[in-house]
Design a protein around this nucleic acid. Sequence first.
DNA 1: CGCATTTGACCCGCGC
DNA 2: GCGCGGGTCAAATGCG
Length: 332
Amino acid sequence: MEFTSLLNTSLDLNSKPIRILNDAPPKQETTESNFIELGFLRNVPAANGNEEKGALIEELNRVSAENKKLTEMLTIMCENYTQLRNQLFEYKNDHSVENTQAAAAAISISNKRRKAAAAEISSAINNNVQNNSESSSSDEDSSKKQREEHIKPKISRVLSRTEASDTSLIVKDGYQWRKYGQKVTRDNPSPRAYFKCSFAPTCPVKKKVQRSIEDQSIVVATYEGEHNHPHPSKAEATSGSNRSLTLGTVPCSTTLSSSGPTITLDLTKPKPQSQEEKRNLRGNINAPEFQQYFVEQMASTLTKDPNFKAALAAAISGKFLQQNNNNRTENW
DNA sequence: CGCATTTGACCCGCGC
DNA sequence: GCGCGGGTCAAATGCG
């Protein structure tokens, strides 16, 4: 099963300010649209006339409807995610015996060459398949294919948005990684970094991180294999120290939109939280606490977004200008 | 001093 | 067999 995080859950907040008045000058238009998006609508004075007021109310209604739609979409996505996660757990349970054998083989041969290791792992899996399977020799081809599927390490891609100037190639996913190499590949001028799980050789998981050739602000992390140990943040939660809330076993930090600017939500970023809160939140995404946490995360992400900051600054400065103008008109 | 990162060298698979 | 390119190793280096 390949897990590719190409879902676009981004809200595209204010990347293109909404046009309110078609004939309004650009500067004014941007400021006013920002007012609406940032919730300053109530403070906009009615001095500009009833026509504009009506337009603003209409816009507010439109934005409210859009917000409702987005909320529904988010709910559906959460449901889908929960379903997929359950399916993953079921799948894992079904294959736990095979995975255990493969992991044991991987540990015992950690110092051998990769080829030999792969051969041993595959033979361990093959033995298991053969032992468990009652298939006759006529099914050899299909069982071969099955084996090949087992041998293939699980590969998943995660896309993360970072500062384009940030050259660290670090994708925060909660796990600890040790960098063991960096290469410049032919198809992409930006270097590719190679990481191993810090639990290696016990944990065979590797990841490759490289900036997207299309958008330098996006880093693509390719994960190979599955961790055979609990998520560090989970382990910490059980052992007493708190760093982050995890939303499942797969990294859910990122999204990518292939077209247009997006805002990426990083749900794995560490956040101070009490043990009790964590217990209450885990596994109940509909809980008000979770939703509050989710909103906090979104707010945190938004405040880190330069576009959002610029929009906020524009809105605030616009607000002050507006107030000054009003004061002047009142004083005159 | 120990650990993580860097980086050049090396290995290996693949296409010609 | 050779060259190319991706992936890995391991000595050197940096940092806390």
